[in-house]
């Protein structure tokens, strides 16, 4: 397989799922003839027909609510919400039904579905197109939340999310949809959900991130090694719920220092949860420096003329790492 962008890798995973299982269907706005506004579902309607790759009316709540029903009847819907900012319209159905039917029916109705949505900033879009509100779903019992960081793991994680028997929120970092290419194997590939990936090993400081923020984090880690002789360990969460606490604890008990980088807001964000788990879970006595969060501030994502300095960048990460290294 030639090198793929994330969009192409996601398309491949969806194609494989539709080809392997008659119960899999896609639904969403403009996903059929148009192939999705980002082309993730390109050509799939031609290949699998309009009943399996469905253009829906423009109603997010309706998309998720009907997908839940289809899952109850035995189908495996993969619902696309055009931008994650519009999942708020579907909050009712995600929270009341998608996440809860299993518990409400004591396991009788398993909601085997995936909600996909592009999330995150940096694409010079209008309001509501740059949100990173994955923490809502991490906070919701019954859901799993998955966020890939590159073409290869996007394909494998989407396959794993589709194979998972329960409801999965799959957020796609649209800022890196086409930012770089990776080798993607010819044969189908999957990954275990709930496992973080140690993207680079190091002993001095742990940097935890996910999604599009893995790019500046990687850049920072390289510069820290080359320019500052700081060997950072970089962890890519991949699954945001359930969080792989064990891998994080092992790393931080080793390094004694930790920075958490994400696009979501700070208060009650994913970083807050990770910090709490590290502090409660046994890393406390190994810490030589305070835990540090680099996140979006608690304001709505600014309009694009002023978004350039809103999200953490490599300099911010390097600066924070050097500060933490001063603690001994």
């Amino acid at each position: 397989m030639p090198k793929c962008t994330m969009v192409e890798a996601l398309n491949l995973a969806l194609d494989e799922a539709l080809g392997n299982d008659q119960q899999v269907c896609l639904m969403g706005q403009d996903i059929g003839v148009n192939g999705g506004v980002f082309r993730v579902t390109k050509d799939l309607q031609t290949k699998y027909g309009a009943d399996r790759v469905m253009d829906t009316p423009l109603a997010e709540c309706g998309i998720i609510g009907t997908a839940v029903g289809m899952a109850i009847y035995g189908m495996k819907p993969i619902a696309e919400i055009q931008f994650s900012g519009f999942t708020m319209q579907a909050f009712d159905q995600i929270e009341q039904n998608m996440a809860r039917y299993r518990n409400r029916t004591q396991g009788r109705f398993n909601i085997d579905m995936v909600m996909r949505a592009p999330y995150g900033g940096g694409i010079r879009a209008v309001e509501h197109h740059s949100e990173s509100r994955e923490a809502y779903w991490v906070h919701t019992p019954g859901l799993k939340v998955v966020i890939p960081s590159g073409p290869r793991n996007a394909r494998a994680l989407l396959a794993a999310s589709i194979a998972d028997p329960g409801p999965v929120i799959f957020y796609e970092p649209k800022a890196i949809y086409r930012a770089f290419r990776e080798d993607v194997p010819d044969s189908p590939e999957t990954m275990e959900l709930g496992k973080a990936n140690i993207a680079q090993s190091g002993d001095d400081i742990t940097i935890i991130s996910y999604g599009a923020m893995m790019r500046p984090a990687r850049e920072a880690v390289e510069d820290l090694t080359e320019l500052h002789s700081i060997n950072a360990e970089l962890i890519d969460l991949l699954t945001i719920s359930p969080i792989d606490t064990e891998t994080l604890l092992q790393s931080v008990t080793k390094t004694g220092r930790c920075i958490i980088v994400h696009e979501g807001h700070q208060t009650c964000g994913v970083g807050a949860e990770i910090a709490a788990r590290l502090a409660e879970g046994g890393a406390f006595e190994y810490l030589v420096a305070p835990l540090k969060r680099l996140t979006a501030p608690d304001i709505p994502h600014p309009y694009f003329q002023v978004e350039q300095h809103f999200l953490p960048d490599p300099d911010d990460i390097i600066g924070a790492a050097r500060e933490l290294m001063e603690w001994t």
Binding site: T66, Q93, N97
Partner: peptide
């Protein structure tokens, strides 16, 4: 809140 899932069941039928 049940009416959309009910509709989805009919769509699957």
């Amino acid at each position: 809140s049940h009416v959309l899932p009910a509709t989805g069941i009919a769509m699957a039928m």
